[in-house]
Nucleic acid binder design. Structure first.
Lengths: 208, 208, 208, 208
DNA sequence: TATGAATGAGCCTTCATTCAT
DNA sequence: GATGAATGAAGGCTCATTCAT
């Protein structure tokens, strides 16, 4: 119930890894450097992670996993596909804008990755994809999204677009506020999927 | 007389690099392996590329550069933003579908790179971004694209969406035809940017 | 408790380096060979020396540095320039005669070095030059050395002569006893610098 | 009778080698770089020298050999050991002062050398040692040099002293005129070997 | 748990040398 | 003789991983 010292050290290692990866990239960072950054001995890392690859997987599960769980809860609490999409976009951009190191690591440095790592990462991402898919599917059912929309394709547009926006922002060295992209992007996405506010549409059409 | 032996060998090396990178990734591939794949001695590679990094940069410039030049010509030959976007999407998907190894390398394996490599790659990508921007800008001037569209943001949506589609397809191990995404994606993009066929708009504006 | 294992291993590496350099020269010796000679793994050398170049510099500082400190103390404990020169010559020859491998390395194998190495070595040598200069300067002040002697030039004669003697001896494969050169060389040097025993001079000046 | 083109090219290669060695050292210079400097193809060097090592040997034989032959003739044309020593010293210093690149190469860059090279170089040096020995032996016979002088030891003092003077001058980046060392050095050497001008002594002593 | 010295496989890169033209 | 592309062995150095303490 109190803080587990093991978990604490594990987190310290992960934070150190984020910081070192952000500066030198995954392949340019050594376990020793991460240990030094975490203020522990090199060997200690291996008490928490069996291989360097497991560090990345844990990074994804811990940082992205937490974000995705929160995002899912918050997004699904809202009603209506357009609002949900807006909330998703806002959370996505806010997550990365909140921590430049995390943004650099996930957008730039952990992209080339061997199959083993990918297998560890994929479930986390699939959760996120599921969330987007859910928004779209329920939106279609509610008539808020055009019926001819291919959900998986639309999800790729949404995720790919967000991903590209964040990546550009990182590469620009955060020259502008990431959040300033929110409304424009939301508008494009809602148009793309033919989204209509169901309440509004109901009132506007005067019937249904 | 016609064949330049130097160019021939350079191309052989690049093809071998693509093939080896596709299987083992950039950091997992050694120069010796690439040389072996190309059927030459290790040192020979250094007669054509001064560092391993230059190999990737050359890969981008050669393969993507050629594609982008062709795409630009072909896309701009078409008239009207919606048609141009359609052509762009078609060419993009066709390019990657044509060569699974090239797709794997560009979508998966060359994503984490050090700043030096990125500096060599960026100009090629910027050319592509320019092409998309041109379509959008000229489309706005022609009234084919909604005037409130932020060109750079829309470009990120288009590029990011395409990129994600290709990446998913590669990770799915080409389970479906990439080209089958074309029409659905084109439709979403045209909606997203509020694209109208100028001919249609002419009629519409005449009647409304 | 008393033995520092780190220092011990560092010394083992240096001894191994001396031995390997003596046989194959600096450029002809690989780090792996030195490690093998020291009975350790290749990478271990890099825990003690960051580059191959640092190995040589450490060699100089450790072996010559120690010798020079001892020589300085012992030489300056003696009084009178002629006796001091005698002591210097004796120590110099004794030092190299004591260890044929050290002699070979310093006289033959570490002569062509790049500027970086030279910068690391120079301070050690300058200490030695200082010692000789001190003998000469104090000798001049005491009237034991001819006043028209250029100290730096005389030092070059002394050091150059000693150096050549040792080099010849090494190249002759130690065919004769190095120490047998001592008296003849001492005599020539004292003549060269017009050295007079101050006691003698006292008598001489009293009578002449 | 006319210039042999083969010899001409051989000399061009040797000059190029001197120049490149002076800048990058022996081990830092590649055959290709020397070829480039000489304005010929890499392979061409191998038509004149079978191995890189032979280049050095030829360098010694050509440059030092020529100098030594001239020095021998000129020195022995003079009479009296003191004058001969003076001439030797003058020629030695003048030779190196005349060409900074040659000086750098012979004093600094060709010092660490494997046994094969040394075997090729030694004969050239032995010729020089012979010249010095001849001066001393004939000087002893003429009563111009102290009879207790060990000729080989004195030769080492002379050669070693000169060598050190030139090396210091090269390392100082030619901050002073090498020739300015001549008289001081000559004086010390004549004192060291107890040299007396036989003519002067004859006159001074009033007899023969 | 924690340490950090030690390991040794592996990789990029250089370059003397060869040889087909 | 001349060329210069090609060779491939060799070496410095890094770093993930282990293990005795």
């Amino acid at each position: 119930m109190a803080s587990k010292p093991g978990n604490d050290k594990e987190l310290r290692i992960l934070r150190a890894a984020i910081s070192v990866f952000a500066r030198h990239g995954y392949h340019g960072s050594s376990i020793s450097t991460i240990a030094e950054e975490a203020g522990i001995a090199t060997g200690t890392i291996y008490l928490y992670f069996r291989k360097k690859e497991e560090l990345i997987i844990a990074l994804f599960q811990r940082f992205l996993g937490d974000y995705i769980r929160e995002a899912k809860e918050e997004v699904l609490a809202v009603h209506g596909a357009p609002a949900r999409l807006g909330k998703l976009i806002e959370r996505h951009l806010r997550f990365f804008e909140a921590d430049h190191e995390v943004a650099a690591v996930f957008q730039i440095h952990l992209r080339e990755v061997n199959p083993q790592i990918r297998d560890g990462i994929l479930p986390v991402l699939l959760d996120y994809f599921d969330l987007i898919d859910t928004i779209l599917i329920e939106g279609k059912e509610a008539g808020e999204i055009a019926p001819d929309i291919d959900v998986r394709l639309a999800r790729k547009l949404i995720f790919g677009g967000l991903d590209e926006i964040v990546t550009s922002w990182v590469l620009s060295r955060h020259k502008y506020e990431l959040m300033s992209m929110r409304d424009g992007f939301h508008q494009m996405i809602t148009r793309a999927v033919g989204a209509r506010w169901s309440g509004f549409r109901a009132r506007a059409s005067g019937g249904d």
